[in-house]
Amino acid sequence: MSQTIRIQLERYRPEEDSEPWQQTVEVPYHRDTSVLDALNYIKDHVDPSLSYRWSCRMAICGSCGVMINDEPRLGCKTFLREYLDAGELRVRAMDNFPIERDLIADIGGLVGHIESVDPFLIVDAERPLSEGENLQTPLQLERYEAFSECINCGLCYAACPQFGRNPQFLGPAAITLAQRYNLDSRDDGTPRRLAYLNAEEGVWSCTFVGYCSEVCPKAVDPAAAINQGKVSSTLDFVQRRAVDPVSTEDG
């Protein structure tokens, strides 16, 4: 552990700070030290007041998203060795979200958007158990499988300038999840979800920057989902299948 690398952290403590400030820390590294390991080192050995989110250490919980040298990355899936040439890492909370504290972004907006798109199977008629399993062919599964791999880490929102401009935009993960169910052969909820997707804040705020898909740690390709959603929404402009969920609940 003779070698070290310099990490610049953006700190924000809401009780004391009126705006974020930079703190520089030297951290020892091994070939296999992840940025999350480095943050844990800092918390244990340098400054216990540092706040950040993490849990699984293996890119499945989606908690440790941060900006690393201006790119949205998972701390656990990014290694210090990638930055030896740069000589320095700059770590801050994910862009486009309010900063709750230090490296913790307030992803309430993202969670709200995900909840708003009916992200579950909707069926017109309940199947009796006697009909057995609701079967799906491998091809039917393949149609939406990649879109179902999302771990809600929020990196795609940190990458999306349109969400950064307008937080009302449903954004990559929520629209991808809506598409994931719309493309599921067992689901009948497309007319309901189209009501959201057809809106300006639905698929039409997207300008296909495509950076969301570049930064996605699970290769979900949200840009593909959104732009396939534009095709669906364009068809619906003619077909008028969209049903406002509020009005159907009343009737």
């Binding site: 924000y12 809401p14 700070d17 705006e19 974020p20 201006d70 790119e71 862009d95 486009n96 309010p98 900063i99 709750e100 307030d106 990458a159 300038p161 950064g164 401009r165 920057v209 495509g210 950076y211 570049e214």
Partner: peptide
């Protein structure tokens, strides 16, 4: 929470 506004030059700093 601290809210940053998107600067007009947001597209300058990232190659993507």
């Amino acid at each position: 929470p601290y809210v940053k506004r998107q600067p007009a030059g947001w597209w300058l700093k990232n190659p993507a």
